[in-house]
Nucleic acid binder design. Structure first.
Lengths: 346, 346
DNA sequence: TTGAAAGCGCTAACAT
DNA sequence: ATGTTAGCGCTTTCAA
């Protein structure tokens, strides 16, 4: 099954650099230069090579190339989360969309990897260590994740989407959750509301913690005591928001404003408020937190804290790129500002 | 920057086979045999090599291996669909979950790729042609997709998830949509209903076409004329289902049963029925089509046609595996039977 | 500007 | 059972 090199016998598999070189009447090196757009090639040679490439439908073998360049030109976006329905999370979908949009201009390819359990995490770690990707963007939503350590220790360029729960030294990009929550709360206070509640997320997610902290800070700064009765935790879902809002109304019937720390929860909260006969915003002013880069299509339209998802995804690939190129400070991170988007209601 | 081969100087990058061999006091070939679990290795050698591997934290370089084996041990699941919110589609999420579960037992890795436009399709085609993956499972929901042709023509093993719209000769795995729709309709007719409507999907999706065809077949077989007034098309979404149901009630106020061709649409349809003051199932009997392998948690619970997603995903990887190993008939395909799951209501 | 030659890290005959 | 050897397809000095 040895290929006869002396004849121009039809190739066994896909065409190689040598076959192109043969057809174009130049050397391998010249073909390589053309493929890699080196300027040091004569126009005639270039044309001949390009013709040969087209004729043979030549595509460079990335494995062979990677072997020498040590680059794969692909980065992984890994979703480390046991719950498989995270796909349905609009925030996740938006991040995927943003990152791949940021990569669209590039020659880089994005591969999506999911790790539902420790075993799959190991598999991904192996995949990365084996040199399949140049770097990884990790969306890890909870605290007990092995991947950051494994990857860092293995020297795989890594940027987290979302600040790590513990203060570990890893590069990350996050929205300014605390600042956003603070602005939202201040807005509500500025509206003259006296009992401003917060419907925050689970406290094992940093976003939940930070958004709660922002409410506490704004409340304290206004010279008020952060009343525990004004706090309820949802799970960032619509149903969770509805239940938590009901609890809040129970704990503090006199509340006249609420900052809801995610937009699905806000939809649920509005439903609970309606069910309780409270009017929005006359009776209760509501500010939401936009997790999905989508204007909240609620009824009534809500003022929201918007996350700059486009900025975040851009920073994500920018930072990862710097790490890959070796021109990044250790654990260089970004916290992207949010902004308050005022809509009709409050 | 040349590595000094005469000394055991600390390696520049990750450890290589040679370094392991040196440390274990054997040859490269023996290390390779241990790594690849060849039986032709003495216990002593094996132990020594394993120790060296552990000590050096050696991980084989997949690029180098692929270059010679011509295998990457990774397959791609590509989602070819312009609408980026497909991620939210529970059917898609279920397929991803099922395929990766089927692969969990294997050494194969699954990478997810998305193609929102022609440009991204080309990028993916290139990615596959460059030898990054051993094969691809393609979820292409609409008809005008370039990828099947490009990949087939490039000789990339390919299995479609869902029957291709045109009768092209490609391997695919699909649910028996027509059979399922037929059974659902027959069930409704068997219930004694005389005006059985259908709320089907868009006709540029084969699933929509097939499910509609099943309704037509069952209706005709029952000696009835398929009344156009009893047909409405949704877009497989909840909102689309609600709107289409409203249209249906408008076109045929006398309908007393409806087969709804997707479960999100069924949820919407129930809402529309409720809004119109129709009672389910007394007034209108409803059968849904379960796209997400999730028991419909509707109110009231609905009898549904269940797709065997676990079977489908298993077949998907099985078929692709056969193609990769070169032991598959050309365009060998599977149509997986559905079954009717009766619940309280109808 | 071009070509010749030396590998990248690994597997797979082929010897031994 | 083990080592030696020859590449896989490509990039990249180094000469010419």
């Amino acid at each position: 099954m040895t290929t006869d090199l002396t004849t121009s016998a039809p190739a066994t598999g896909p065409p190689t650099l040598d076959e192109v070189a043969l057809l174009a009447g130049v050397s391998r090196a010249t073909v390589s230069r053309v493929v890699n757009e080196s300027p040091k090639v004569s126009p005639e040679a270039r044309v001949a090579v390009q013709a040969a490439i087209a004729q043979l439908r030549y595509v460079p073998n990335r494995m062979a190339r990677s072997l020498v360049t040590r680059r794969t030109d692909t980065i992984a976006l890994v979703l480390s989360e046991p719950n498989s329905q995270v796909f349905s999370d609009p925030f996740f979908a938006s991040i995927v969309h943003g990152v791949s949009a940021a990569l669209a201009e590039t020659e880089l390819t994005l591969v999506l990897l999911t790790a539902r359990d420790a075993r799959e995490q190991q598999k991904i770690a192996r995949y990365a260590r084996q040199g399949h990707v140049d770097g990884v963007v990790l969306m890890s939503l909870h605290s007990e994740d092995l991947l950051p350590d494994i990857l860092t220790e293995a020297g795989v360029p890594l940027v987290l989407c979302g600040r790590p729960y513990d203060g570990r030294s890893v590069a990350y990009v996050d929205a300014d959750n605390q600042g956003g929550a603070r602005v939202a709360t201040e807005h509500l206070i500025g509206l003259g509301r006296s009992r401003v509640a917060v419907l925050t997320g689970p406290m094992d997610m940093i976003a939940g913690v930070d958004r709660h902290a922002g409410w506490v800070a704004a409340t304290t700064d206004a010279g008020r005591r952060p009343d525990p009765a004004l706090v309820a935790h949802g799970d960032f879902t619509e149903a969770g928001g509805e239940a938590a809002m009901a609890r809040l109304l129970d704990q503090a019937p006199d509340l006249d404003a609420v900052f809801v720390a995610s937009d699905p929860m806000a939809v649920g909260a509005l439903r609970a408020l309606r069910a309780a006969g409270r009017r929005v915003p006359e009776d209760v002013a509501v500010v939401g937190f936009d997790d999905a880069d989508v204007a909240l299509t609620s009824d009534p339209p809500l003022t929201t804290v918007a996350q700059p998802l486009d900025v975040m995804t851009t920073e994500l690939v920018e930072l990862l790129g710097r790490q890959i190129d070796g021109r990044a400070e250790p654990a260089e991170s970004r916290t992207c500002p949010t902004r308050l988007v005022r809509r009709a209601s409050a």
